[in-house]
Amino acid sequence: MNVILISVILLAVVGGVSALILYFVAQKFHVLEDARIDVVQEILPAANCGGCGYPGCRGFAEACVKADTLEGLYCPVGGSEVMSKVGSILGREAAQTVPMVAVVRCQGDCDKRPQTNEYDGPTNCSIATSLYGGDTDCSYGCLGHGDCVVVCGFDAIKMNPETRLPEVDEDKCTGCNACVKACPKVIIELRKKGPRSRRIYVGCVSKDKGAQTKNACAVGCIGCSKCFKVCEFDAITITNNLAYIDPNKCKLCRKCPEVCPTNAIVELNCPPRKKKEEDVISND
């Protein structure tokens, strides 16, 4: 009985003293934080992707609360919706931004861009890039080792084992820019999602001369400038044998993909064109 009593008292005393110490320490070292940081953080997607340029969602929330305006602060994952909520909490105007999505500017799958050697190093695009131009004749194209897949925090980019090219799931893609930063070949670009997700872009980043590109890949941009000539909106520029379509000027008139001799220009989510006669025949 005595033993039990002593134990209970001792434990109670130890517990009580510890509680007191904890209480005073908590008082002394208490950090006053703006309560709004927690509220803002609640709204944010909690992906901690770093797409906003701050270390995690907490960092972004702090930055939002501290800043005088929300200009330059944007959560690419949550988009305008989340930003306007943040704006309403803080009583500030949130900038309206267009939703962005990642596009992969290489279409050189195994058939169209034949393999010329076999890479036998670690499955890592950065390591392969520092070694050489890649296992095809095109030193600009996708290496297919999936650095972009690894960094994607939203499961939105997947390597297609058949084509050895990454594919973006545009419903999941939040435009956080992580894959763009990870790609050592700068193949991935963030583009405006576009009306009804329709986008037209050049699916190639090869700066090689036309003949060289053609030699290496069937769907490379050879810099022939046919698209440049057909474009009525000055949206297309050609530098270093490579065409680029400015998403801000492009009106999605769909003339350029038609004239491209190598089918290097990609139209996404556009309704099917009227089939030409020859196509109909070949499809039968």
């Binding site: 050697n117 076999e118 890479y119 036998d120 190093g121 390591i127 070694l131």
Partner: peptide, 8 residues
């Protein structure tokens, strides 16, 4: 056959 390429 294709040549193997790997880092040193």
């Amino acid at each position: 056959r294709k040549l193997f390429v790997s880092p040193s």
